[in-house]
Design a protein around this nucleic acid. Structure first.
Lengths: 113, 113
DNA sequence: ATATTTACTACGACAGACGTACTACGATAG
DNA sequence: CTATCGTAGTACGTCTGTCGTAGTAAATAT
């Protein structure tokens, strides 16, 4: 069974999170479920990975947080994308397209043999 | 200018190296030049990254080395792919195809705006 | 004679991801 | 009434791959 290793997706966790925040503010648990759903369970982000990404991106100014003492359930920390975060996301998309092209030069297509 | 960051290619250095060794044995310096050429200089692997990949892959049994006291030029260490290395390469290719699909779900195509 | 290219090695630092574990609350099941 | 499950997040230490810097050494170009 082929699954996605962390080293591969490594450079794209931030991008994935930002993508999901483009639709509007969200919080950790919701993001993690969306990643699971959108990837058909092929990629399940680890909690520690996710929350450390939040911290890192907030420090870098890509996202902003605000706390909500929820009516029901536990208190949540919501995150929203900043202008700078949007720029970063766009850069990453361009980088992805380039990287994809380059890596594909080193991948054998044929499954034959 | 968009260039490829190491975090992105991170999980694929081994794959790239194995790909180049599929054509026949080669050595560090040659591999590094081939990567530069084949990627149109978009990706230039660092020496330390390359040689540590060799060490790691040999330890894992994916490649084998042999020294050649060259007639001309300096002494080289050649590497060749093993059966296990070939299997690993094929796995990585499959993983790449999966990863590519998944990441693309989080990438906005439109450059508009 | 000197600089550059070839070919490789050594060592330490760093960042991102991971494993494990813990807190805490609400809802549901037994 | 207690236990477990789902939700929501924090803390801490470890590991791996990559990188920066530097050094060695021979061959080739200027």
């Amino acid at each position: 069974m082929v699954s996605i290793s962390s080293d591969v997706i490594r450079g794209y966790n931030d991008t994935i999170i930002l993508y999901l925040l483009l639709d509007g503010p969200s919080y950790g648990y919701e993001i993690s479920k969306k990643i699971k759903d959108l990837s058909d369970e092929k990629y399940i982000i680890k909690q520690t990975t996710l929350y450390s990404a939040f911290t890192r991106m907030e420090k870098n100014g890509y996202i902003e947080s605000y706390s909500v003492d929820a009516e029901s359930g536990k208190r949540r920390t919501y995150y929203r994308v900043t202008e700078s975060g949007l720029d970063y996301y766009r850069e990453k998309c361009n980088e992805w397209n380039l990287t994809k092209e380059v890596i594909e030069r080193f991948i054998r297509k044929e499954d034959g043999e």
